[in-house]
Design a protein around this nucleic acid. Structure first.
Length: 201
DNA sequence: CTCATGATACTCT
DNA sequence: GAGTATCATGAGT
């Protein structure tokens, strides 16, 4: 598999993330057009990244080659889906945050329950549920069809002027870094929420 | 629409 | 043990 996206260096993960807008991700009978993504960089340069303090058992996929899925479990109940970016040994990834269901609407509705169509994949955990993806996708390639996921370039390219950038949602660190990208005005983009530290009672 | 809160279990220190 | 790249719900504006 060869695509310019796969050759982008980890240092350019923000620009690379931005170009994913308008691409389509498909899995288990549902296809989604991406409207919102976030970039996460590697060791020592991005305090908000899981890879910031070096490789761990969980994050080893981020240090592998580009084009593989990194799924992780968060807050005790939700899955999130990233696409690894940059060369082997570099850690960077793009979090797929939200999108518009363009195929398999009935399946997506079944998985998500009674919600408005625009909310079907409006948020990273919701997007994962709509796609019917879980831990088994971790470490699989999203370009060659060997895994459950398939990522394909935009059929309706997004003009650079139609893209907005801002702080990443819910992160505890580096909240001043504008590495969240979304299609301006699209109804399927998730609302911004700032990080709230939680304490156990 | 905007907050604020709790549920929940995994990962790393 | 502490913190978390979230979501649904419920009350307030």
């Amino acid at each position: 598999m060869d695509h310019p996206w796969l050759r982008a260096p980890a240092a350019h993960v923000a620009e690379t993330a931005r170009t994913l807008l308008g691409w389509e991700v498909a899995a288990n009978g549902v296809r989604i057009r991406l409207t919102e993504v976030e970039a996460y960089a590697g060791t020592g340069v991005d305090p908000a990244s899981h890879a910031h303090r070096g490789p761990t058992p969980r994050t080893r996929v981020m240090f592998g080659p580009a084009g593989y899925a990194y799924t992780y479990f968060v807050f005790g109940m939700h899955w999130c889906l990233n696409v690894v970016c940059g060369g082997e040994g570099e850690a960077a990834a793009v979090l797929l945050r939200a999108g518009e269901v363009v195929d398999g609407l009935d399946l997506a509705r079944k998985r998500r329950g009674e919600v408005p169509d625009r909310d079907l994949a409006r948020g990273p955990a919701r997007l994962v549920v709509a796609l019917g993806v879980d831990a088994t996708a971790n470490g699989t390639c999203v370009f060659d069809g060997t895994g459950p996921l398939l990522l394909t370039p935009s059929t309706r390219p997004v003009a650079p002027a139609a893209v907005s950038a801002g702080p990443r949602v819910g992160v505890a660190a580096a909240h001043e870094v504008p590495w969240r990208f979304w299609i301006t005005g699209d109804p399927t983009v998730s609302p911004y929420r700032r990080h709230v530290p939680r304490r156990r009672t």
